[in-house]
């Protein structure tokens, strides 16, 4: 495991990371891929909702909100 790798839900707001690995069940995995979250994609953590969950991310020109459990399954390398 790389030392600079974190799960997406731990990526601090305002920071960017590159997707290393997706850990999700089949249906959820396909959705994430369709949204462009393939390995190598740059993701930026934009802002948290008032309660801290979900969090909005910037992915390939779109703003996508993900709940903690889904973002927790996406491993990113801090960039």
């Amino acid at each position: 495991m790389r030392t600079d790798a974190v799960s997406l839900n731990r990526l601090p707001v305002g920071k960017k990371g590159r997707v290393l690995h997706l850990d999700a069940d089949d249906a959820s995995r396909r959705r994430l891929l369709d949204l462009g979250l393939v390995v190598g994609t740059e993701v930026e953590s934009l802002y948290k909702s008032p309660s801290g969950n979900p969090v909005a991310y910037f992915v390939r020109g779109a703003v996508i909100a993900l709940r903690d459990d889904v973002a927790g399954g996406i491993l990113v390398a801090l960039s």
Binding site: A24, D25, A27, S28, R31, L32, L35, P54, A56, A62, V63, I64, A65, L66, R67, D69, V70
Partner: peptide, 11 residues
């Protein structure tokens, strides 16, 4: 349990 979902926040 709640199913996983994503929500797009359009411009």
């Amino acid at each position: 349990l709640p199913s996983s979902f994503h929500l797009e926040l359009p411009p």
